[in-house]
Design a protein around this nucleic acid. Structure first.
Lengths: 227, 227
DNA sequence: GCAAAAGTGTTTGCCATACACCCATGT
DNA sequence: ACATGGGTGTATGGCAAACACTTTTGC
């Protein structure tokens, strides 16, 4: 049996993380500048190699911990990129993941040490290799996730207003939603609990904060957004 | 720059192909029996290792060619499986693909040489490793594909009746569809051309054969099946 | 005549979308 | 007073689902 595996090529295997955050009404991506040639100066996703006895998911979680200091992050596989020439000079197969984090809850110092920066999704810099393609596919995955579960839990703070949630969905789908219809649709799912606390920073009248009911948050089979 | 890659672990990288076929009203999968230990005798997806300068997609196409003799097959990535213990004794990361082929148009002799057999999706044998999980995810991917494009083109012959197409969709989604509503929905897409030829083997009255308009077959953004 | 699929038509109810409208309040 | 978001209500159109009904023909 072992003979069967002998003589097979072995490959460098990496993960790249598309890290979504949300701030001031727009989706952002965490990128860091490549500090060595080739393509020095261009921006890159956070990545790292997969170790001997580590799953890709574990590697992605490790990369996230190393760069943001966060654990227990939502993480989902996007796709594997294996074009032999995707990286010049060396052959690396990379598994892309995307994750959702709350921008303000991370370790800023750690970010600075890597030179990392949050870039608005709608205005990204030039990226190395096929990282642009990874981001494109990751956004589609995120749109899917948000269509059958409330993506807000991972990207918004514990308590959020319906305006904040709507703006988030508008950022994810890059289109507008009717305020009244969005409110009714979301509330009809029965996933949110209205708190007595209110937010007055975004409107004169004040908007109630809502929280997500953990237990039911992902059971939804109903469609939130047609997609 | 090269130093950066030194000292990184290299991994055995494989593809596994979930090969869907369609015959006598049911979806089938092409499996072959494992002829060596461990888990000798259990059934397995078609797979193979990725070569030095080959993409995963190319490897999957090669495996398909070697086992079925077919080229130009629809092929789509499902996911990458990387649990370090997914295969006993050796660490192999595997990228799963699914493909759609016409059962009768393949090289039967080649299949026999591999001991391969078509198994009904609803009654699969015991499978090695995580191949059952791969199949489960592949079916979900197929359901997605069939929800926004006519999956019939790859699985059915050139000309097919609406009954055949409906039975195919029922097999893919493992539920029934109302005959009248299905007909109206599909025809309203404007993707099918009615031919003058008719099929009398499945009904007394005879059913028109339809063909798929190649040019428009995948442009559909409309939903065929709510999913 | 019966069964079974082909093929067409009708009815119903849900739901997305559009939009009107009042409320509260800081400027 | 007015602009802005909060929050509620209503009208409309499209479409999915259920189902009735007629046609054809081998048994």
């Amino acid at each position: 049996m072992v003979e069967y595996y002998k003589g097979q090529s072995k490959h460098l295997l990496a993960v790249d993380c598309v890290i979504f955050g949300y701030e001031s009404g727009e989706l952002r991506l965490l990128l860091y500048p490549r500090s060595f040639e080739p393509v020095k100066g261009k921006w890159s996703l956070m990545g790292g190699f997969i170790r001997e006895m580590e799953s890709c998911e574990e590697a992605a979680a490790r990369v996230l911990l190393e760069t943001t200091g966060l654990t227990d992050i939502f993480l989902e596989q996007v796709a594997t990129f294996s074009n032999p020439h995707r990286e010049p000079g060396v052959r690396v197969v990379s598994v892309a993941y995307y994750s959702l984090i709350r921008i303000h809850q991370q370790d800023m110092e750690l970010l600075d040490r890597h030179g990392a920066r949050w870039w608005p999704l709608t205005n990204l810099p030039e990226l190395i290799f096929d990282h642009g393609e990874m981001i494109r596919k990751a956004l589609i995955s995120l749109q899917h996730k948000a269509s059958y579960s409330l993506a807000g839990s991972e990207l918004l703070p514990e308590k959020f207003t319906l305006l904040q949630l709507r703006k988030l969905y508008e950022a994810i789908y890059q289109r507008g939603f009717d305020a009244g219809n969005f409110r009714k649709k979301i509330l009809s799912l029965g996933l949110l609990t209205k708190t007595s606390e209110m937010n007055f920073t975004e409107s004169r009248k004040g908007a109630h904060y809502y929280t997500l009911d953990r237990e039911v948050s992902d059971i939804t089979t109903e469609r939130i957004v047609k997609f």
